[in-house]
Design a protein around this nucleic acid. Sequence first.
DNA 1: CAGTGGTCTAGACCACGAA
DNA 2: TCGTGGTCTAGACCACTGC
Lengths: 256, 256
Amino acid sequence: MGTTQLETVPEPKYWHLKTVLSEALDSDFAVGEILPNERELASRFGVARATLRQALEQLELEGRLQRRRGVGTTVAPPRVGVDVGTSRHGWPGAAGDAWQPVDCTSAVPPVAVARMLDKDFDAEGEVHVVRRIRVTNGQPVAAELLYVPHASVPDLAAIEAPSGAARARSVLRELQRLAMNGQDRAVELGSARADDAKELDRLPGAPVLVVTTRYFAEGRTAAVSVATYRADTCRLTFGDSGDVEISHHTQERRAS
Amino acid sequence: MGTTQLETVPEPKYWHLKTVLSEALDSDFAVGEILPNERELASRFGVARATLRQALEQLELEGRLQRRRGVGTTVAPPRVGVDVGTSRHGWPGAAGDAWQPVDCTSAVPPVAVARMLDKDFDAEGEVHVVRRIRVTNGQPVAAELLYVPHASVPDLAAIEAPSGAARARSVLRELQRLAMNGQDRAVELGSARADDAKELDRLPGAPVLVVTTRYFAEGRTAAVSVATYRADTCRLTFGDSGDVEISHHTQERRAS
DNA sequence: CAGTGGTCTAGACCACGAA
DNA sequence: TCGTGGTCTAGACCACTGC
């Protein structure tokens, strides 16, 4: 009979495709291996290229694939765990943190940041903006903008390097002199702005995990950090129990 | 002259669209207001519907919009900050936590979870699987699967409610009796499985923030929690200094 | 240069929610 | 039943990478 299939739940094609591809990735491909190109895959599965791409997009979002224009689609390595929790009682730039300063400018912070800094920052509204990047295993994993009100680094000599990495280090150094009161952290999903995307080696709009940290000192918000981590390659870890050590791999998503 | 436009950098249409829409949202629309439908918007901007949708998708990813099939596209309220950090020294299910148990089954955990549980869990490989949901302001914000090896709750009477919310509460109650050693948390991007999506009132594949927590007791991993938060509506907060309150929106472009 | 993924179009039909 | 967003198609051209 032709009616052997009830076809009660018409699952979207791209969803089914994603499942099939996901299983193929587990069994038939090694990390770093390049997949057939999109036109080839689409015709092989008998779907339009746009549909195939919808499935690939999801797999990339889940960190299973990596796509690069002009190159191809490759099987991604497991996500790297980047620690975001242990510098809990240290200022940014403290000895041994994973960040490296890039440059420093003076600018008006975005409203969302301005709202977090106490209302009494400099009248003109300008603050120091330190740009840093975080590199793990040779790959850039995060880009940060650190907003520091002038009031937090009063002794910063205006004379010294007015911009660039040198000035960034000066600001960070001055920051260390404050007694930290505590901090406050939030994580949310965002999309990479053009400048962040460039430093992260991704296209603008790529999904990122935005970690916003407020540093408190002397009863004020002494600084605000907005760090954008590549969502495709990173898993943010919070080592709440500093003593236990782990070495696990990426979590995978499976139906129980 | 006809050459007034240099057009040096052909920014993608959907990217430009997103910017324009984003500004319009800030100035011309109120939270909860419904936008014109996609066909209308597309023709108004002179682009294909697919292109318009690409812009809307990004805005939804950033938590600015909410789209519901059969209803329309509405302006989303600011993301809710959900605390993920303060139950640091409490077991899941401790008094006053934000979760409510839904049911409890026994099943083989996914490999990624099994790898985190010590190798010596029950031979058959089955563990208790407690399902819980987290509701904030009447809206479901997260769905959780809590994996508890039988060894962690040895005194659980097999007699009592073999499944359902009642048994879930029993497992959680037994868990409290262990002395907690510490915990360990990770956050990463994922896409909602069909079952989670249903509880979160989203379509399968919707972006979620996956929070994986390991609970340690008696030198073992006593339980593993995999919680999926709606990425569009949630901002995960880690109250390292629990008292301060915030309400910001998504990251915005820096003023140079 | 050829080949890749990224963008874009102009249609079509489907699944869902509300009236 | 109608209007919404969700899925899908079969093309086209562009931007980038590597040779």
